[in-house]
Design a protein around this nucleic acid. Structure first.
Length: 782
DNA sequence: CAGTGAGCGAGCTTCCGCTTGACTT
């Protein structure tokens, strides 16, 4: 048994460190936090200075039990959790649970898992910093108070009430999505006319090439026409040439947030997919820790990178750099995300290969030379006009880091004015240029695009909201709660005008473009919009984009010992609790109700609002005892915010009876699980390719026949009397009795069709006796 | 699986941040 027990947070890290420290140390991991506030009564004694009540959660009991065992056997316990607020708190909780004295237990830190860093850390132990621990407790308690006070307000005030939640991070994330949607809805595009002239000139080899030059934008079709007319019969010549050097600098190495953004843009990965793959790479020792907000590289890593650059591209491609975090809240417990071994350019695993190569390239690039450019701007004079045209081109003189890596940009970073810089043919001042044609093309201004998962992460990080370990879970939460949806949107066709000047004549054309199409973007749901409005109305301080930044300043003061954590919480809690009580007492139930007009047939009022089961439209009033109102559910692409009267009335066309097939009615409707066909007491889901409002009898009947056949296909065997079915599912054959499913043991899966009733019953009993382990369900804290 | 939409009110839900697996009909 080793004399020393060293505890870190991550098991993968434990393995590496044990190798470095050798026989004197046994290194174990605590798998993150080992204690948390109990759930009952918020886990806080509000009246007793907010004293927290901590418990070891059920799924951490085993870890704690084992650590206690190791600690008992060791002569000395060393705490080596991450060097940040959360890590410090974990060390303190370990002291509490393992019966160690925080005033004397050795606490060490390192921000990189390298031999020199760890060996030097062991020579400089300190003790747990209680001020930092208190800052974490304040953070934890404030989040618990906000979450557990606000969520119940929603349960009381929302008409839709299952599983609603609110919190410091998630509610602001939803707000960001909601506000962008409203900006887009309110946006009115303005069109201008872009002037583009095409000239011919000879390139270096003497071949004629076409290049383009731009003129001043025209604000209307009339102005554009006037300008083109003024150019009729004109001569063109180069009046000025400017050549300027330029450079591009490589981006910093990856943090969690930038990795998620680039993997989204370059590889199309969702934020959670990126994290799953990165976790795999980390656990197999291929990359450093993947949840970090630091852009720092260790000395050893920088050396390895430059060595690799020299070997692959030569010394002139090397430029060592140190990157600094812009974000002050960065807690720099780890390095940037980089390959562990720079000489491995790729990995075996095909799933994570593309992500690994992306990380490898970005890491290489960050220590490589700037790319050098030459930007040429040529002014072109129009003989009949005092306006000038501008042609610009860019030539790469030295590729530098671009040899391996080019960062992608978000749509919203690319402005309309920016043009793709191509090459210009060699030009000389006073050189006459023959005009091929000149165009005035109508271009519309565009609203900012909707957020992707990754661009939302970027925004949250800019606001200092959330941490690397929570970006992916936060997105899952707001999707799961139904505040936000990830989906595509079809664009709409729009005409745009083009005026062409060619051979001294002007022609007018109209062309079509698709606008507003979105792919895999985040849209707020009506629930998200209504909840956001409600929270903004009654809790504007918590919904403020700067709320987190403001309280982080106070946490910092606690961490520096300048403020008592309980005082900080008290200052926050008292006014907040007043708002909560006031809201519960005074606020009306929220439904986002909007009046659309009056039904032509009944003369009754038509409204749209949130109902118990989601957004809906309603004809008539619920207060009318005589006649119940008519209800219809909104389509999932519609919103109570934007639906028109005509669209609303259209929804009342369901259910539709299409006719009689095999002696039964064929009825189309939309139910709890989407559009369906009901026929002969059976239900058949309608795929996305069908519209229940327009599907015909001729389209519907083959669906019934097909789905019926597919179901037969899935059925292996039926025991009619016992109501037991043997079915084929995506995870192999299984038994279905009533609503419950039972998995077949592996050895019986091949021969499922031969099973007798007795054998099937035996399997059911067997599974019932030993139910498959489920994901640990949260239990009531006690 | 596929009706619902008002109100009453058992008992329940809920936060953010640290970490990994075992699980899916």
């Amino acid at each position: 048994m080793a004399k020393n027990l060293l505890i870190v947070e991550s098991p993968a890290k434990a393995k590496t460190i044990e190798k470095i420290l050798g026989e004197d140390f046994e290194v174990r991991s605590c798998y993150g936090h080992i204690r948390d506030l109990e759930k009952g009564d918020m886990g806080i004694d509000v009246k007793n200075n907010y004293k927290p009540r901590y418990i070891v959660p059920e799924d951490k009991e085993k870890v704690v039990r084992e650590l206690k065992g190791y600690a008992k056997k060791a002569d000395e316990v060393w705490l080596a959790t991450d060097e940040d607020r959360e890590g410090e708190a974990i060390s303190w909780h370990l002291c509490e649970v393992l019966g160690l004295d925080p005033a004397s237990t050795k606490r060490i830190v390192f921000h990189e898992i390298t031999k020199p860093a760890i060996q030097s850390a062991v020579t400089k132990p300190r003790i747990v910093d209680m001020n930092l621990v208190n800052a974490q407790q304040a953070r934890r308690i404030l989040d618990r108070i906000v979450g557990f006070e606000l969520s119940p307000v929603l349960w009381r005030k929302m008409s839709m009430k299952n599983n609603l939640s609110a919190g410091r991070v998630q509610s602001v994330a939803v707000r960001i999505i909601a506000e962008r949607e409203r900006e887009i809805n309110a946006f009115t595009p303005v069109s201008t006319f872009k002037i583009e002239a095409f000239f011919s000139a000879k390139d270096l080899s003497g071949k004629a090439v076409i290049f383009s030059a731009e003129g001043k934008k025209q604000s209307s079709a009339e102005d554009a026409e006037t300008f083109l007319k003024s150019c009729i019969g004109a001569d063109y010549k180069v009046s000025d040439i400017q050549v300027k050097p330029g450079k591009k600098t490589p981006p910093a190495p990856f943090t969690t947030s930038t990795l998620q953004q680039e993997a989204s843009r370059k590889l199309g990965y969702s934020v959670s997919r990126t994290m799953v793959l990165a976790q795999k790479l980390y656990e197999s020792g291929k990359i450093t820790y993947m949840r970090t907000d630091s852009v720092n590289l260790s000395e050893t890593a920088t050396e390895a990178v430059t060595k690799q650059i020299a070997a692959q591209y030569g010394n002139k491609y090397i430029q060592t750099r140190r990157f600094k975090n812009k974000n002050e809240s960065a807690q720099e417990a780890h390095e940037a995300i980089r390959p562990t071994y720079m000489d491995s350019m790729t990995v075996e695993d095909s799933d994570s290969r593309r992500l690994y190569e992306l990380i490898w390239k970005r890491t290489m690039a960050c220590q490589m030379a700037d790319a050098e450019l030459e930007k040429t701007t040529a002014k072109i004079q129009i003989s009949t006009n005092k306006e000038e045209l501008t042609a610009s081109g860019e030539v790469l003189k030295f590729d530098g880091f671009l040899k391996v890596y080019m960062e992608d940009r978000d749509d919203d970073d690319v402005s309309d004015d920016e043009q793709q810089e191509g090459m210009l043919p060699p030009l000389a001042v006073n050189q006459p240029l023959p005009l091929k044609e000149m165009k005035a093309v109508e271009r519309f201004s565009r609203p900012l695009p909707r957020y992707t998962e990754a661009s939302l992460v970027k925004k949250l990080e800019e606001l200092g909201i959330g941490r690397p370990s929570t970006y992916a879970p936060t997105i899952s939460t707001i999707l799961k709660r139904g505040y936000v949806e990830k989906r595509d949107k079809e664009g709409v066709k729009r005409d745009f005008r083009i005026l062409v000047l060619k051979n001294d004549a002007i022609a007018k054309q109209t062309e079509q473009e698709n606008t507003g199409a979105e792919k895999s973007k985040l849209f707020p749901t009506d629930l998200g919009l209504v909840v956001t409005d409600f929270l903004k109305l009654y809790f504007d301080d918590i919904m403020d984009y700067n709320f987190t930044a403001r309280i982080e300043e106070e946490f910092d003061e606690v961490a520096q010992g300048k403020m008592l954590w309980s005082k900080m919480i008290d200052d926050f809690y008292n006014p907040f609790k007043k708002d909560v009580d006031n809201t519960i007492e005074k606020a009306e139930r929220i439904s986002g109700e909007r009046e659309l007009g009056f039904d032509a047939v009944s003369g009754k009022k038509v409204i749209t609002r949130m109902g118990r089961y989601g957004p809906m439209v309603q004809i008539g009033d619920t207060s009318n005892e005589e006649e119940k109102p008519r209800f219809a559910k909104l389509k999932n692409t519609q919103s109570i915010e934007t639906i028109t009267f005509d669209e609303a009335m259209e929804l009342f066309r369901l259910p539709r009876n299409l006719g009689v097939f095999e002696d039964s009615d064929v009825v189309v409707n939309i139910g709890r699980f989407g559009p369906y066909i009901a026929h002969d007491k059976k239900f058949y889901s309608l795929g996305k390719e069908y519209d229940p409002y327009s599907i015909s009898f001729e389209e519907a009947t083959p669906i019934i026949v097909e789905k019926r056949a597919a179901k037969e296909e899935r059925t292996i065997k039926v025991f009619e009397k016992e109501k037991i079915q043997l079915l084929r599912g995506p995870y192999g054959p299984y038994i279905k009795q009533g609503l419950r499913n039972y998995k077949l043991p592996k050895e019986k899966q091949e021969t499922a069709a031969d099973l007798s009733l007795e054998e099937v019953k035996a399997i059911i009993e067997e599974v019932k006796a030993n139910p498959p382990k489920r994901v640990p369900r949260k239990k009531k804290g006690s």
